[in-house]
Design a protein around this nucleic acid. Structure first.
Length: 283
DNA sequence: AGGGGAACCCGTACGC
DNA sequence: TGCGTACGGGTTCCCC
């Protein structure tokens, strides 16, 4: 399976899974201690200020915006985690394995003895603490949530209209649609039968409907299986996602197309990222 | 508006 | 076996 070695990074379904896990586990618990061991993951605040503003706060809702995990706090602050490639939020009830612990960058100690670790192997992910106002400003440029009812086929067509860039690039542009990365862009375009290199503005209204349907279905199905893991993605309990076995094209260059049997093509020519497509099914 | 390039970071793969 | 090096990947930011 060509591409199996490539890194799979948290996109919308993976951050949604993390946020749901945390929401179920953490609401109402007080943060009694904060340990920052790798301050280079921090944004917006220094370690000392993070400790000061988090200690004593009660954890509210955990939720997702785009590929961000957002943890609301009783103080009005929001802890905003962007896992990027190898970040995970892991709840440690005393049994977190050493191979995870060694990559912990910061830990929140809770009032019941558990801890929440932000573990990040390569540390390109980020953790920021923001006021609600600051969060609104920082995320105002993000595009529509693809699982929001407002994201209809018609709305997608409006978003694509007049754009000269490749449809795959536009889908992955967080300012236009928020949360879609390389895996799900590839999968959705295959499901919709659209060549990823097509000029976005030339996607017809009918294709727009099919593409919206493909995006929503692939994201929804992946969330139901707790996301896609190849290597480093983990949910809050340290488990892998199950959607990897349902990927039709991503990681399958050279394999037969699940629909027509033609050999799937892998290319970096469109956006410098691995694109996998079926030249027979995708026009 | 949008394209290109650099920076961020380190495990992994690969060459010798 | 061990050492050195190239690579990848989302986002931001800077420049054109």
């Amino acid at each position: 399976m060509v591409g199996a070695k490539s890194l799979v990074v948290p996109e919308l379904p993976e951050t949604e899974t993390i946020a749901r896990d945390l929401d179920r586990e953490l609401v109402g618990h007080r943060i009694v201690g904060v340990r920052v061991t790798r301050p280079d993951v921090l944004r917006e605040v220094r370690a000392a200020e993070l400790v000061r503003r988090l200690t004593g706060a009660i954890i509210g809702r955990s939720w997702r915006r785009a590929k961000l995990v957002v943890i609301d706090l009783s103080t009005g602050d929001r802890l905003v985690v962007q896992p990027r490639f190898t970040g995970a939020l892991l709840i440690d009830a005393g049994s977190m394995p050493e191979e995870e612990r060694r990559y912990s960058t910061l830990a929140l100690d809770l009032d019941d003895g558990r801890s929440v670790h932000y573990r990040d192997i390569r540390r390109l992910g980020t953790v920021a603490l923001m006021s609600a106002d600051r969060f609104e400003k920082a995320t105002t440029a993000l595009g529509v949530e693809p699982l929001d009812p407002a994201f209809t086929g018609e709305h997608l067509s409006v978003l694509l209209r007049g754009r000269r860039r490749a449809i795959k690039k536009v889908l992955m542009d967080q300012r236009i649609v928020a949360g879609i990365g390389n895996i799900y862009a590839n999968e959705a375009l295959w499901r919709a039968g659209i060549d990823p290199s097509r000029e976005a503005g030339n996607v017809t209204a009918g294709e727009g409907l099919a593409l919206r349907e493909a995006i929503v279905s692939v994201l929804t199905e992946s969330i139901a299986l707790r996301g896609t893991s190849f290597r480093d993605y983990r949910d809050a309990s340290g488990a892998r996602g199950g959607f990897v076995e349902h990927l039709a094209v991503y990681g399958h260059a050279g394999d037969p197309c699940p629909h027509c049997g033609a050999r799937l093509i892998g290319t970096h020519a469109i956006d410098g990222r691995m694109t996998v497509l079926c030249a027979r099914c995708q026009k």
